[in-house]
Amino acid sequence: MIKVTNYTVQKKKDNYIVRSNEPIRCSCGAEVLKRGSKGRYIVGNDGTKKRYILKRVYCPACDKLHMIVPDFIEPYKQYEKSAIDGVRNGTNDCSAADDSTIYRWKKL
């Protein structure tokens, strides 16, 4: 996964398309090639689900496939990063998540 901080989010029908505004390079430093996209559902703090279209890129130097992820999405999680961080800091009580999920977030 390659995290980006400079991006734009464009709404198109029921999807949100994430586009990077900066050149993307692999962690090995090589240039990457476009390899398609993938839809990913993210649950907000209020419980609403939004479908984000994330780009996938291929690095020919290290022969790996990466997904371009904006900084508001936590890798391998289905909730927004702000909801997870708020529960961990005690400033937010994410009502959309189950008690067992909140317990795991606090444990980390």
Rank of each mutant, 00 (worst) to 15 (best):
E74F: 08
G86V: 00
M67Y: 11
V9P: 01
E31S: 08
G39V: 06
K12H: 14
C26V: 07
K77D: 13
L108F: 05
M1V: 07
G36M: 09
C28K: 05
D98W: 14
Y103L: 12
Y41M: 09
V57L: 08
Y79I: 10
C62F: 07
R88S: 01
L108K: 11
N15F: 15
K106T: 00
I102A: 01
E74Q: 13
V69W: 03
Q10N: 15
D93W: 09
N21K: 11
I68T: 07
K12F: 10
N89Q: 14
D63L: 10
Y41E: 15
K106S: 00
D98T: 15
Y79A: 15
K107T: 04
V57Q: 05
K77G: 05
C26K: 00
F72I: 07
N89F: 06
G36Y: 01
K12R: 14
K106M: 01
V32L: 04
C94L: 05
Y58R: 03
N89H: 10
Y76W: 12
H66D: 10
N89V: 04
G39A: 14
D71V: 09
C59E: 09
V87I: 11
L54W: 05
A96Y: 01
Y41H: 11
V18W: 08
T91G: 01
N89L: 11
T5K: 14
K11E: 06
I42P: 00
D63Q: 13
E74I: 02
F72S: 04
L65H: 12
A96W: 00
K11R: 10
P60M: 03
K49E: 12
L33H: 11
T5N: 14
K55H: 13
C94M: 10
V87Y: 04
Y7K: 01
P75H: 05
Q10H: 12
A30C: 09
Y79F: 15
S27P: 10
K77E: 15
S95A: 14
T101F: 00
P60W: 04
R88Y: 02
